[in-house]
């Protein structure tokens, strides 16, 4: 069973549908014991860092997430919240990854649009999450903030600057893009996560 953490963030449904297509049972929940006992945990997220962190703290989910022992996958805002700090709303985050989340600043108007929307390539793939995914395969992203490159970077994307398209440390995995919306490449990544020991 995969537990998808329920909090005040958008489009959790798409993640559940994607798991359904892969034949994986999942439940959307904020129940501590259900999350703790799940084989895998997905920490999704679309929205704003500050209210999301506030909600997680109110529900005690912040302490729960960092203490999880099973494989955990953060998606989009989920990845950002797993870092130390986000410039979005000047927010202290969970601190699983010792990285900073910064706002994209285009060098000139009309050259790079923000948010970064669409299909971009990922490279320097170094996590088991990307088994069967080729260097420079395309994934779908929508975001205005990015995680800088660091020692936990597991995939890189170039947009204005090279940034962490994915992070991994111990049992914690994270992707900035949306695997649930990234066609067959995204399905491969989700399948790899589900099949982790």
């Amino acid at each position: 069973m995969v537990a998808i953490i329920k909090y005040n963030s958008g489009n959790v449904q798409s993640v559940q549908y994607a798991l359904q297509r892969l034949g994986a049972a999942s439940v959307v929940t904020d129940d501590e014991s259900v999350i703790r006992n799940a084989e895998k945990v997905i920490f999704p997220g679309v929205g704003h860092a500050a209210p999301a962190m506030q909600y997680l703290r109110e529900k005690g989910l912040d302490k729960l997430i960092v203490s999880l022992q099973q494989p955990v996958l953060g998606i989009c805002l989920g990845q950002q919240l797993m870092c130390n700090y986000s410039e979005e709303g000047d927010t202290d985050c969970l601190g699983i990854f010792n990285e900073q989340v910064k706002l994209f600043v285009p060098p000139a108007v009309g050259v790079f649009k923000v948010p970064h929307v669409g299909w971009n390539s990922i490279y320097n793939l170094s996590s088991i999450l990307f088994k069967g995914v080729a260097e420079n395969d395309f994934v779908y992203s929508v975001h205005s903030y990015y995680t800088a490159l660091g020692k936990n970077t597991a995939a890189t994307t170039d947009y204005i600057v090279p940034f962490s398209a994915s992070l991994q440390k111990d049992n914690f995995y994270a992707v900035q893009f949306h695997p649930e919306k990234s066609g067959l490449v995204g399905e491969t990544i989700l399948k790899n996560f589900i099949n982790l020991p």
């Binding site: 359904q20 929508v142 919306k181 399905e187």
Partner: peptide, 8 residues
Amino acid sequence: IAANINIP
């Protein structure tokens, strides 16, 4: 649609 397609 959401249940059946894997693009936005």
